[in-house]
């Protein structure tokens, strides 16, 4: 299945890109993908990373084809 990943702020900086599409095996959870990408990019301060699946903050969910997973660093609006 194809999953679109998007990276923001300091995570995009560490990843060296804003987005990518990954071909993943069925059955992977958002949480597993998060751990995998944190390790792959050696993201600093991994506890601060939140992920949004199709714009909802959640990680205890199994991914399905076409999902968009966003990697979000701490919010800094205002």
């Amino acid at each position: 299945m194809k999953i679109r990943l998007r990276y923001f702020g300091m995570i995009a900086e560490s990843a060296g890109k804003n987005d990518e599409v990954l071909e993943l095996n069925d059955g992977i959870s958002a949480k597993e993908l998060k751990a995998r990408q944190i390790e792959r990019f050696e993201l600093p301060d991994p506890e601060s990373v939140q992920i949004a699946v199709n714009q909802n903050l959640e990680e205890e969910v199994e991914l399905k084809d076409g999902d968009e997973v966003a990697f979000l660093p701490p919010f800094a609006g205002g």
Partner: peptide, 21 residues
């Protein structure tokens, strides 16, 4: 608290760091 907005603090010497609320 809830809106995914990110802020890059740019210093006068053009280096930067990321803002955290």
């Amino acid at each position: 608290a809830k809106v995914p907005i990110f802020g890059k603090e740019i210093f006068e010497d053009e280096t930067h760091q990321w803002k955290v609320n």
